[in-house]
Amino acid sequence: MSETIALNYGAEEGDFYIQHVKRTEPFERTNHFHGTYEIYYLLAGQRGYFIKDRSYLISPGDLVFINKHDVHKTSNIGPPGHERIVINFSDRFLGKDHPLYHESLFAAFQHPSHVFSLKLQEQIFVQTIMNKLTKELKERATGYETYTKLLLMELLLFAGRCAERQETVPFEHASPLHKKISEIVQYINGHFQEPMTLAGLAGRFYMSPYYLSRAFKDVTGFTFIEYVNTARIKEAQRLLKETDMKIIGIAEAVGFENIAHFGRMFKKLTKLTPLAFRKMQQQVPLAD
């Protein structure tokens, strides 16, 4: 069996979700951004992790914090197989309107490094919290929902203190190629509304289209067109939520020349049509 799930609780797009999985074969995640916060803890193996506009090498004992709506994707590096725990939670679960909220709980999500490499004692501390979470969610004894929130708060406070101790130093790219791809991603993020082709981008950055295509996939985990479409759909979600623009106007504003193509890409990435997404946002307003 290629995948063993030790714990799977909740829905990934819901208010609280946790999954502990061990895989023995190559795996790449398919969802690229969401409106929940994400904590990723690697127990075994190595992973590439692309977050916003940078790529990271994740090793066992690394704790990763991804802010809501940040584009991200894990990819295979080295021998196949890895073991990890991922937690997603919403503002409704533990956000600004929650009575237990404190800004220090979210310090790790604001830290520019995204990744905290834990020392052995810190790994033991985090693993203890994860074990308690697993026990509570499997047994579901009286008050387990409350204790789950308290354990999550303990993990977030620990991470916030790690963020305070960790010096903010200039980010070191893994290689000149990683730096170049990061620059290209930043360019896409700033110009995705414009017509954009692989050949045109390759010419702008003095690379061959073939080499750029391969390098972009290797570094980010996305194909070029996957990333462009992801950036466009992410902005479309914001416009659907925050404006009264017509859907055809939003499609054009984010760079789609064909409304049907926009609809297909939107549903592929969000599992909803643009209209259904807008109606859902109107029915259940999300806290900022």
Rank of each mutant, 00 (worst) to 15 (best):
E3D: 10
L7D: 07
A11S: 14
Y17I: 10
Q19T: 02
H20Q: 15
E25W: 02
F27N: 08
T36R: 08
T36W: 00
Y40I: 04
K52I: 09
L57K: 09
D62L: 08
N67P: 04
N67Y: 07
V71R: 05
V71W: 02
H72V: 00
K73G: 02
K73R: 15
I77N: 01
G78V: 13
P80S: 07
R84D: 10
F89M: 01
S90A: 13
R92S: 15
F93R: 02
G95A: 06
H102I: 04
F109W: 12
L118P: 11
K119I: 07
L120S: 14
Q121A: 13
F125M: 12
V126A: 06
M130D: 02
N131D: 15
K132T: 09
E139T: 14
E139Q: 15
T142A: 14
L157E: 05
L157F: 10
E164H: 11
S175N: 07
K180L: 15
Q186C: 12
N189Y: 03
H191I: 07
F192M: 10
M196V: 08
M196S: 08
G203W: 04
M207R: 09
S213L: 03
T220D: 00
T220A: 06
I225C: 01
I233A: 10
E235R: 15
R238I: 02
L239P: 00
L240V: 00
L240T: 00
K246E: 15
A253S: 13
H261C: 09
M265S: 12
A276Y: 04
M280S: 15
M280Y: 04
M280I: 09
Q281C: 14
Q283W: 10
Q283V: 08
V284L: 00
P285H: 06
L286D: 11
